[in-house]
């Protein structure tokens, strides 16, 4: 059925890597049975509305696919430059989880949630890797010096530079980063 092919149901169909897990970003638990549509809201009515929920293995190719899937949603909702900034920030956050969070050989699950909240698109990235070092968030470490020809180390610098309203919390072994971008056409 054509209804099955819109972007939000595709993201639910991609939940095969995280079967049965409850996402850290307030994700609704995945239900058994593949062909069902998005689960109905279980929470009482509130302004926030999940429009994209995706869980996938922590490897660079799955991250790339997740970015493609998310962009289909964000391109409709954000200004072009914001959609790009969000894609880059998400790429840096999720590739950091792949490389430094779960680390090599451990393809844990990454959770990506996009939520409409007021006039903002709120993005949440969750994982169950080690705690994020505070130096990543507060910018204690200056960006690399271009003159040294650094071949790494720019990831967190770009995240801090481009992400708006970035928040981190850790609870019960779950890391969660939240950021938001203004909708191009607020309701």
């Amino acid at each position: 059925m054509w209804v099955e092919q819109h972007s939000s149901s595709r993201s639910f169909d991609d939940r095969r890597h995280g079967e049965g897990q409850t996402g850290p970003g307030g994700l609704t638990p995945a239900r058994d049975g593949a062909a069902q549509g998005p689960p109905e809201d279980v929470a009482p009515p509130e302004p926030a509305r999940h429009i994209h929920l995706h869980s996938f293995r922590a490897n660079p190719f799955a991250v790339r696919d997740a970015l493609y899937a998310a962009r289909a949603t964000t391109e409709r909702l954000l200004l072009i430059d914001d959609a790009w900034a969000l894609e880059l920030v998400l790429a840096e956050i999720m590739n950091n989880i792949v490389e430094h969070g779960y680390g090599e050989g451990d393809e844990g699950t990454i959770f990506l949630t996009l939520t409409l909240q007021g006039n903002d698109l709120v993005c949440t990235v969750g994982d169950f890797g080690p705690e994020l070092p505070t130096a990543c968030l507060n910018g204690e470490r200056p960006p690399p010096d271009p003159g040294d020809l650094p071949d790494g180390g720019f990831g967190w610098f770009l995240i801090r530079d481009l992400a708006q309203d970035l928040h981190y919390d850790r609870e019960e072994g779950r890391n969660r980063l939240t950021l938001r971008f203004p909708l191009a056409n607020p309701a």
């Binding site: 880059l88 790429a91 650094p150 071949d151 790494g152 180390g153 720019f154 990831g155």
Partner: peptide, 13 residues
């Protein structure tokens, strides 16, 4: 159309 810090790192390498 899209370059991330890993791609930039590859260019520098």
């Amino acid at each position: 159309t899209f370059l991330d810090s890993s791609g930039l790192g590859a260019l520098v390498s």
